[in-house]
Design a protein around this nucleic acid. Structure first.
Lengths: 229, 229
DNA sequence: CGACCATTTGATATGGATCAAGCGATGTGG
DNA sequence: CCACATCGCTTGATCCATATCAAATGGTCG
């Protein structure tokens, strides 16, 4: 259990991309007020959005693209805590410093909101405060749910992951994965080899079909659900 | 990975113990206002406090004793999500239903607060709303931190657990564990045998000393911290 | 077309699970 | 107050799922 994943990229925030005040249209307006307060910023694939222990001055909302939040242990093992898809708000873990690091997996557009702005608003408008509580609670539930992988087999983990992704991008039947096998492995606490072999397993069992490497067809969801334990 | 832990007790909430309006003194008053709103209730060791999927009408604050929150998979595997010690508030996972079950590990006294009361108060007093957000965020961070066990070895898990417990009950040097080996195992995603062997390992390495089975002396914290990865 | 990188596939090793006794503390009844 | 039963825990032997090590393959992009 010593090596899991070496640190693979030490990308930096692109200094050229400064926040621009941009009215952001449509794009998942779950939390109405929020996006009006921020600037929309592009991030290139693999760019760092923020690092662990940096002051947590901003909140982030994904407009397009996918983000991973993760921690890296001293010896290089990496645990991905979450994938964030369009519409998701992240970076509100709590407190003064970020507990995790965040990177763009693909090219992303992300609304960046000053935390102070939100806090100030929350102090006046307790509807906003409630909304923030709500969001944090939802995230808590997600992480608690994810912590069950600890007691699951490789097959259960992968099946569960596919179902989770399918639920989040409801393009019934096909799951287009934005992340690499390594990302999946680090999210599930497995190795890429095991992820690969398990996908093949599921394919042999006629539960899925791996059409392009990152495009997966769910052939038999109830089989997957059964495996999800 | 099929059997981990069968369901071991199906204890019921003692119907004799009705909530009594009791002013609760001292005992960890971190969140001032909260405890004034609730009733203090005793729970016997192994009594159920609430079950998964029950309506989440209450919040809970531990006055004395220890509580475990957990989920059980269909086949009986159990994952303990948290241990709650005196002063801790739990049961605010979110939403309408509890995501986890909660049981008293030892005899407990617990303040039970109607969620609606808190919500109503939060709607008027946004300081309360902020406090709830704060608490939820703290819990989120704790769970995120715990999710790192996924990539840790047995030794790292156990060492980390001991340090965590030592931090929470700052009785410098000795850790009095209220929970069984099985509870520890289910919290760390290990078996009791592995927990036992690992404790022996740590003892042989002069990092700890197991004096009574549930009393552990931390002989060398920096060694433990080194193992914690 | 060629090089590179992500992924798959294969062979082997191993940490922790499982199976199976032992053991010691706690409690019970005689 | 002591023999005995019980329960929680430890210890030992063996097994297995997944990690690790090592190539082979194939897709992508210049």
């Amino acid at each position: 259990m010593l090596t899991q994943t070496a640190i693979r990229n030490v990308s930096q925030r692109d200094p050229a991309t400064q926040p621009r005040r941009v009215p952001v249209p449509g794009a998942a307006m779950q939390t109405g007020t929020i996006e009006l307060m921020g600037a929309c910023m592009p991030f290139a694939a693999n760019a760092e959005i923020y690092g662990e222990n940096e002051p947590a001055d901003y909140l982030y909302k994904v407009v397009s693209g996918t983000v991973r939040t993760y921690k890296v242990l001293v010896d290089g093992r990496r645990q991905i805590g979450a994938f964030h898809l369009p519409g998701d708000i992240f970076g509100f873990e709590t407190g003064d410093e970020h507990a995790f690091s965040a990177e763009a997996i693909t090219d992303c557009k992300i609304i960046v909101i000053k935390r102070r702005t939100v806090m100030a608003l929350a102090a006046r408008d307790n509807d906003v405060a409630r909304q923030m509580w709500e969001l944090t609670a939802r995230e808590l539930r997600r992480v608690q749910e994810h912590s069950l992988v600890l007691i699951k087999s490789a097959e259960e983990r992968v099946a569960g992951f596919l179902l989770e992704m399918a639920d989040r991008v409801p393009s019934s039947g096909v799951v287009e994965l934005p992340m690499s096998r390594q990302d999946i492995a680090d999210y599930l606490g497995l190795t890429i080899e095991t992820v690969s072999r398990t996908l093949k397993h599921l394919e042999n069992a006629a539960a899925i079909e791996v059409s392009k490497r990152r495009r997966i067809l769910l052939r038999n969801r109830s089989a997957l659900r059964r495996l999800n334990a």
